[in-house]
Simulated assay, not measured.
Amino acid sequence: MYEFNEQTRALIELVRKIVSDHQTPLEARMLRGEKLTWAHYDPGREAARKAGLWGLRLPPEFGGMHLSLVDRLAMIEENSKCLAPIRFGGEVPHDMFHLQGEQKARYLDPFLQDAKRYSWALTEPGGGADPARAVSTCAKWDGESWIITGSKCWISFFDEADGVLVFARTGKRNDADDISMFAVERGNPGLIARSVPMLGGFTTHQLTFDNCRVDDVACIGAEGAGFKHAQKQLSKARFGVGAKALGIAQRCYDMMVEHAKQRVVFESALSDKQAIQSMIVDSWIEIQQQRLMVYACAEKDDRGKDTRVEASVIKMTCTEMVCRVIDRAIQIHGAAGCTYESPLAHWHDRQRMSRICEGPTEVHKYRMLARRLLA
């Protein structure tokens, strides 16, 4: 089993306390069928900020904690055990750290103050598994402004954001090196949004950019460097997906053990049945194996090593693992696990999407890993 150091254990306990005080009651409301908005999460978010849990990966000069990847993942894992986790603040896209002048005032400072929130728009209807080559949205400079034309799909949190960071081609090479990133505000007349309901109660959006005009300040970072920044975000995001899966799997495991001990069937507890014992043991082994891998790879990343391949493995194996554990937990709970009055049913729907988001399992396995191993 992986052992955290004293600092990491303290962070885990702090997260656990805030979740217990603020997020667990939200989970109960969700299980009663209430629809939660961003405002419901604000008290927990503010409690985290007062506790110093703000800008977890930001450098100190930006007011952040500059935590190691191991620490951040441990916090994500603990936080994800709740169906309504803390929404930590101060999460600034890496490429915004270097903004200066008007760009800093317009974008970085509001991010740091939690005065603005932007969603992320990379995926297009033409394909999400190979985003660089699938990007057909384009931005052209007409001498006065950038004109963005195209569409994006499956965009999360747009309904709660002040704008969107959109990736568009600014060159003619049709490769990853001619994609730039632009900030587009919600009220821009050239931005049209349509909501798309998804599994697990999520809502994503399809965005259409119809001759959407933005000024030169809205081009974040160097022209043509947008996808390189996106890759950095995606790699770390895949670690986060793995940690989230660990937290959910651990909660489901705890629930199945408790239920198996209490539930009496054919005059004995479920935990006495060999088939149930096998499901519980298999789940424990899988969780421990994945936890060891996630944090060993995070330690490697903290030492400055290239962990892109490891991030793919973590994303692929952890999302597959958590779906198996959820399924076993539902099976052990029976009909009680199939109702939306239980978090198991919610996680069943939500985590099905995790095997697709941030790159489908098959892409990570056969394109990224096989290509690397057979090179």
Rank of each mutant, 00 (worst) to 15 (best):
E3W: 14
E3V: 15
T8E: 07
R9D: 13
E13I: 02
L14P: 00
R16K: 10
S20R: 14
H22S: 08
T24F: 03
T24I: 13
L36T: 05
L36N: 08
T37N: 04
A39E: 14
A39R: 12
H40D: 13
H40W: 02
R45E: 11
A47N: 03
A48P: 03
L53R: 02
L56W: 08
R57E: 12
P59K: 10
F62R: 02
G63Y: 05
S68M: 01
D71E: 15
D71L: 07
M75Q: 03
E77F: 07
L83Q: 05
A84G: 02
A84R: 02
P85Q: 00
F88H: 00
G90E: 10
E91D: 12
F97V: 02
F97M: 09
F97K: 04
G101A: 14
Q103T: 05
Q103I: 09
R106C: 03
Y107K: 06
L108N: 08
F111K: 10
L112G: 09
T123Y: 15
E124T: 13
P125S: 03
G126W: 09
A134S: 15
V135A: 01
S136K: 12
W141M: 04
S151M: 01
W154K: 11
I155V: 09
E160I: 12
A161R: 04
A161D: 07
G163V: 00
L165V: 07
L165R: 01
A168S: 13
N174I: 14
N174F: 15
A176G: 06
D178M: 09
I179S: 06
S180R: 09
F182A: 08
E185S: 11
P189W: 00
L191D: 05
M198W: 03
G200E: 05
T204H: 11
F209C: 06
D210S: 11
N211H: 14
A218E: 08
I220H: 07
G221L: 07
G221P: 01
G226P: 06
K228R: 15
K228I: 07
H229Y: 13
A237C: 08
G240H: 01
V241K: 11
G242N: 04
G242T: 03
K244D: 04
A245T: 03
I248H: 02
D254N: 12
M255D: 04
A260T: 02
K261N: 06
Q262A: 12
F266M: 15
A269R: 09
A269W: 00
S278Q: 13
I285G: 06
E286M: 13
Y295W: 13
Y295M: 09
K305P: 03
E310Y: 06
V313P: 00
D327M: 09
A329K: 02
I332T: 00
I332L: 00
A335L: 15
A335W: 11
C338G: 13
T339H: 13
T339G: 15
Y340P: 01
W347E: 12
R350Y: 02
C357I: 14
G359F: 01
G359H: 05
V363L: 15
V363E: 13
K365Q: 04
L369G: 01
R372H: 05
L373K: 01
